[in-house]
């Protein structure tokens, strides 16, 4: 009898405790984002769609050779300009259906011309829009995301390159810029981004032959 009364009383008190928890959660900030209006920026090594900086490309065909699904297609011609042979890209397309977003093309590119941008909203209305995306076109992804701008993505990429760990502060590192950074971007920066404190890049101090960054980073520091 008294046990039953105690049970009822405890039940009532537990209701009040629960209501207090609920009320506290009511005033706590939401952990979700109001998605279409607010978007979270992706991590530094997020692999989005494949993007290209056309002037930097030296048409070495490394990305075509390494792509495991043959999603990239490149063709070039040679011209004579001021008594020099100059290579020029005629067609550089990317098949987003075949691409498996592995990032190997980004890692192997010696000039970091081809890179993976941070675009993740990639639905299209028909196949034609994604079967052969022209990488030379600066507005290639406008139909997917109207805020897309090639310069912004290039800027993002300077700080955060796939396959490369972000650099420590410049005072600490007496090393030359990281392997794989293109000679066109001499200021391989001390990235203020999220440092993972795993591999720091090891680099021959006097800029020897550019080595493959993937194998480079696996060496113990």
């Amino acid at each position: 009898m008294f046990r039953q009364i105690k049970v009822i009383y405890l039940g009532f008190i537990s209701l009040l405790i629960g209501m207090r928890v609920t009320a506290q959660n009511f005033f706590a900030p939401a952990v979700t984002l109001d998605y279409p209006r607010k978007k979270k920026p992706m991590e530094h090594n997020f692999r989005g769609m494949v993007d290209l900086i056309p002037p930097d490309c030296v048409i070495c065909y490394q990305c075509i050779k390494i792509c495991p699904t043959a999603a990239l297609f490149l063709s070039h011609t040679q011209k004579v300009e001021a008594e020099k042979k100059v290579k020029e890209i005629t067609k550089f397309t990317f098949n987003a259906e075949l691409c498996c977003f592995c990032g190997l093309c980004d890692e192997i590119c010696p000039t970091d011309a081809i890179f993976m941008n941070k675009l993740y909203e990639v639905s299209a209305f028909s196949h034609d829009q994604i079967l052969s995306i022209d990488l030379m076109n600066p507005n290639k992804y406008k139909h997917l995301d109207s805020n897309y701008s090639l310069d912004a993505e290039i800027n993002d990429n300077k700080l955060r390159t796939v396959g490369i760990a972000p650099k420590p502060a410049p005072a600490a590192a007496a090393v030359a810029p990281a392997a794989g950074a293109s000679p066109a971007n001499p200021a391989a920066p001390a990235a203020p981004g999220p440092t993972t404190s795993t591999a720091t890049e090891t680099k021959p101090a006097d800029g020897g032959p550019t080595t493959n960054p993937t194998t480079e980073n696996k060496q113990p520091s």
């Binding site: 959660n25 009511f26 005033f27 900030p29 939401a30 952990v31 979700t32």
Partner: peptide, 8 residues
């Protein structure tokens, strides 16, 4: 219900 569940 949304605010109690920390969403919007």
């Amino acid at each position: 219900s949304a605010h109690i569940q920390n969403r919007m």
